[in-house]
Every structure is written in C-alpha cells, then in structure tokens.
Design a protein around this nucleic acid. Structure first.
Ligand SMILES: [Mn+2]
Ligand SMILES: [Mn+2]
Ligand SMILES: [Zn+2]
Ligand SMILES: [Zn+2]
Lengths: 132, 132
DNA sequence: TTTAACTTTAGACATAGTATAAATTGACAT
DNA sequence: ATGTCAATTTATACTATGTCTAAAGTTAAA
C-alpha cells in the first residue's frame, strides 16, 4: 500500500524501510496484534529487521497517534489501529479481541464520579462468540 | 485475623501457614496488589516463604473464588479481593486502581450484541483523581 | 509405622519488554 | 562529491513477570 508512506509523513515519522514494513504489518494484522506478532509478520518479508526496531517503531506509532495500546490480555500489550474510542469484547475461547463500536453501548453515570477526572473509558466484555 | 482460617476452610483450601500468611497479606494490601507485592508483604513476617508458594496460593485463591484477577495494568496481573462485579478507575498519575461500585454506572445495550454471549463485563476508566 | 497424597522450596526456564553501545544510514552544508 | 552530524538500526544484555520441575518436607490416614 502506497498510503503507508503518506500516513507516516502525515504523522511526522521518518519513513524508513523498517518503519514502513512494521506499519504495514501492524495494519495488515487484522486487529490487536502484540509486538512480537507484528515482528513475526515483518520477518516474513524483511528477515533482517530487528526485534528492537519493531518495538521502537510500534512505540513511536503510539506516541504519534497512529496506534493505541490496549491492556486487555494477560501478559502482553496489544496495538490497536483504531485510535477512536470504542469498546472491546474478548472471546475467552479463541482469545481473540473484537472491537465494539462506541455507539453500540451507552454508559450512564460516568460524570457522577465526583472524585475522578475521566480522560477516557471503555467497556470490556468477556464471554464467547456465539456459534451461528 | 482469625477469620482467615475460616475463610480458607469455607473455600475448601487446606490452611497451611504459608497460605494463611499469603491470604492475610493479599487482603491487608489495600486494593489490587500484584503477586510480587503480596510476596514482599508476606516476607516481612515470614521471610522463608518462597515466591512459588505465593504465586501458587494466589492462583489457588482465584480458582476457589476468593480472589479475582484483573488485567488492567501493563505488565502485571493484579488480584482483587472483591469478586463481585464492579468497575475500575485507573489513576494515571499514581497508577492506583480504584473500585467503582457496580451501581455507580449503568451500561445499556450489552444484550444487543447478537454475535456475543457476554459472561461478564466492566467499565474501565482512566484519568486522574481530582485534587480536592 | 508405613504409605501415599499434598505442599513447599530453590532454581531453572519462558516470555515480554527495555536499555545500551556500536554500526549503519541519511540529511545536508560545504 | 565529501565530510559531518543526527537519526536510526542492530545485536546483545538486562529486568521483570510468571510458570515449571524435581527434590524435600509435611500431613493424614491405613
Ligand atoms: Mn492520525
Ligand atoms: Mn467466596
Ligand atoms: Zn480495538
Ligand atoms: Zn476491584
């Protein structure tokens, strides 16, 4: 995808080959890959890219607002290409994370929390995907 | 506290000295300690208790329903003495986790998620505690 | 008392993530 | 083009969380 280059430029990120490959990989990975999952993907096409660079790049993409981290799975941070507010459903069988659109759920009362200044919130749901 | 022994017995857990100390520690720790934080506490009174035993005991307490794990902080699981449904607020300055009573927030629409069978859910809020 | 089941322990191991320092690359002024 | 400096990448070491293993210790009951 040529748009990767534009995306990086728009976010003031020097587009090196390693960064392009990493960004490509994290966006192609479907949803919510971990850093090492992204690294695995990068390595298939660019076997010489180091683990540190993938970690550095993902952290940079978060810093620049291209990705958001989610702390939902035990033991690993996952990266979310959707930086807009939304909710998450975790399928406890497959361990997959599914995005729930912001408007699918309505939370009432978050401004009644007088002691807290809420910067962001989300609903985290767990269960299993219905067999259809 | 003498009730610890009764608590363990009620949950069919053999009350060894190590388990009593660990349970005491996790309950006294205020809210949402990590396993190693519990271990540190245990060691002050019982310096010979091993790390593995504290981890084993905490996992056993979860299995038996005395504690619940929460995956909210990056890099570590925390243990929650409150096993009833409730929400969480994370103070991004102090990194402290605060319990929000279930009834303080109302979530609408969770049964409209036709593809998912929701076993549990919670609202996770982030921000900072208001200086009062 | 013997036996078997349960528990604890120290240490090894696995994995996620960060830190460091040297090597490479790239921008850019001469 | 060349030299220079900053940015980037790389291999590697390191830290931290958590699990696993095998041996030793304990408990309870035959
Ligand atoms: Mn953007
Ligand atoms: Mn209980
Ligand atoms: Zn998401
Ligand atoms: Zn809690």
């Amino acid at each position: 995808m040529q748009n990767i280059l534009i995306l990086l430029q728009e976010h003031k990120i020097q587009p090196t080959p390693q960064r392009i490959a990493t960004t490509q990989a994290v966006l192609d990975a479907g949803s919510h890959p971990s850093a090492d999952e992204v690294w695995e993907r990068v390595k298939t096409d660019h076997p010489t890219v180091s683990r540190a660079t993938v970690y550095n790049t993902l952290n940079l993409l978060v810093e620049k607002g291209v990705l958001k981290t989610q702390i939902i799975k035990e033991g690993k941070v996952v990266f979310d290409p959707c930086v807009e507010p939304h909710h998450h459903f975790i399928d406890e069988e497959s361990d997959e994370i599914h995005d729930i659109p912001w408007d699918a759920l309505k939370v009432k009362g978050e401004d009644s929390l007088k002691d807290f200044e809420v910067r962001e919130y989300q609903v985290v749901l767990r269960g299993r995907r219905k067999k259809k």
